[in-house]
Every structure is written in structure tokens, then in C-alpha cells.
């Protein structure tokens, strides 16, 4: 296959450029990440993040032929012969396919991503019915790969003010958790022209999520709760 890869090393390049690689594939090369690892054996200067190679750690998110995804779970057979790889859009590039994710994680941390419960912890586990626990499905599985937030035009424009789909999905994950007692404060925090309401339901986030999660639905649920508490 032929890979055109975005290259930029601030240590030596004045500006970014695209570089083409012909990658000889073997039967054992199934995923795009396998092809990238092969490129690195030909040119050790190509830089990208990778770790679990099974879609749970969220390291190798990149822009694949214009669409964000994880290289390790993108099958080569599902791609055309010629593939263009760029870093995730909207975040500063550190080098090649590696972006600076500081802003993304800042937004995630801003929603207070932890259960807050003011009662003294019981001796044993807090109880939660299977139905209550079910509410967390489709939320807790997020791997923080940033495919969604960096596919979102609202996040491109206001990465410092708009929480973005990944952060909002997690905001709802804690609102939905029966063990958390901070729903009102969480809603207050999001009731803001930018933090939540920059979402214009473009739904790029849903389209690209490699885990099949739906941030738009979670955002809708938060909005519903906001409406409910005013009536």
C-alpha cells in the first residue's frame, strides 16, 4: 500500500510536508498500525504514538484519509490502496503525527471527572441496581483518544471555552451515576454559552468514535436535565 504521511520536525523542518512511502505488506499485516510500524522500520524518524494495539488505550488516533480514527483497529482491507495520514486536526502539532493534547485533557479535567459523594463511605460497596448501572454503558468506555473532539468544528473554534464531545460525554457519565451527589453543581458549571451550548449537533463525534459511543446523545440528555430543572 501507499502511505502519504504528514511530516514535520520543528528541530529541522521550516514547514510541514507530505512524504510518500510504498509499504510492502505481508499476510500478517492486518491493521493500519501494522503498516505504520513497518514504515518505521524503513525510516526510523517517523514519529507517532502507539501502545495497546487493540483499541483500548487511545494512543494512536490520527486523521486517516480525512477521517479521525485509531490506526490499530482500522483494517487495511477496509482502506483504499493510497492512504493519507495527518495528525488530529485542530491541535498543535509537536512532530509528525504527534499532537499536543494539553487543551483536550484540560477540558476533560474541567468537568470534575470523579464521583463526588458527601456521605461517609459505608463498610461495603454502595449499592446500585443493574438498571442504574446500565445508565453508565455507552459513557464509561471512553478511551480519551480525542477522535471526537478534534473532529468537532465547535471545538476547533473554541478549544479553550467549549468542553467538547469527549469532556461532555464524561460530564454526563458522572451526572448519570447514582452514587454522585453533585448533579446540580455539574449542571450549573455547564450552563454557559460556550461550555455546553457550543454543541450544534453536527454529530461528527458520533461518526468517528472508534468505540461506537454517542456524545451527542449525552449532550442532549444534559440539556434535557437543564430544561427539566427550570420547569
Amino acid at each position: 500500500m501507499k502511505l502519504s504521511i504528514y511530516r514535520y520536525d520543528p528541530d529541522k523542518d521550516d514547514k510541514p510536508y507530505m512524504k510518500d512511502y510504498d509499504v510492502p505488506l505481508e499476510h500478517s499485516d492486518r491493521m493500519l498500525l501494522d503498516a505504520l510500524v513497518k514504515v518505521k522500520t524503513m525510516d526510523d524518524s517517523i514519529s507517532f504514538r502507539r501502545s495497546c494495539r487493540e483499541g483500548v488505550c487511545g494512543s494512536d488516533a490520527m486523521n486517516i484519509n480525512g477521517k479521525n480514527g485509531l490506526a490499530c483497529v482500522t483494517r487495511i482491507t477496509d482502506l483504499p490502496e493510497h492512504v493519507t495520514l495527518r495528525p488530529l486536526p485542530g491541535l498543535p502539532v509537536i512532530r509528525d503525527l504527534i499532537v499536543d493534547m494539553t487543551q483536550f485533557f484540560k477540558q476533560y479535567e474541567s468537568i470534575k471527572p470523579y464521583v463526588v459523594n458527601h456521605d461517609a463511605p459505608p463498610e461495603r460497596e454502595r449499592l446500585q441496581s443493574p438498571a442504574e448501572r446500565e445508565e453508565l454503558n455507552g459513557l464509561y468506555e471512553c478511551i480519551l483518544c480525542a477522535c471526537c473532539s478534534t473532529a468537532c468544528p465547535s471545538f476547533w473554534w473554541n478549544p479553550d471555552k467549549f468542553v467538547g464531545p469527549a469532556g461532555l460525554l464524561q460530564a454526563y457519565r458522572f451526572i448519570a451515576d447514582t452514587r454522585d451527589q453533585e448533579t446540580a453543581a455539574r449542571l450549573d458549571d455547564l450552563e454557559d454559552p460556550y461550555r455546553l451550548f457550543r454543541c450544534h449537533t453536527i454529530m461528527n463525534c458520533v461518526d468517528v468514535c472508534p468505540k461506537g459511543l454517542n456524545p451527542t446523545r449525552a449532550i442532549g440528555k444534559i440539556k434535557e436535565l437543564m430544561v427539566k430543572r427550570t420547569v
Binding site: 470523579y114 461495603r124 460497596e125 454502595r126 449499592l127 443493574p130 448501572r133 464509561y140
Partner: peptide, 19 residues
Amino acid sequence: VVELEHMGMPFDRLENGKI
């Protein structure tokens, strides 16, 4: 393990609400 649960770890649940 109980501490992890108190921290918010989303364990699956039995009908009686336990882990």
C-alpha cells in the same frame, strides 16, 4: 476493592445491587 467502588469504579451489579 470496596475502596475502588467508593471512588466510582463502574462495576457490574447483581440484582441486589452488590458488585
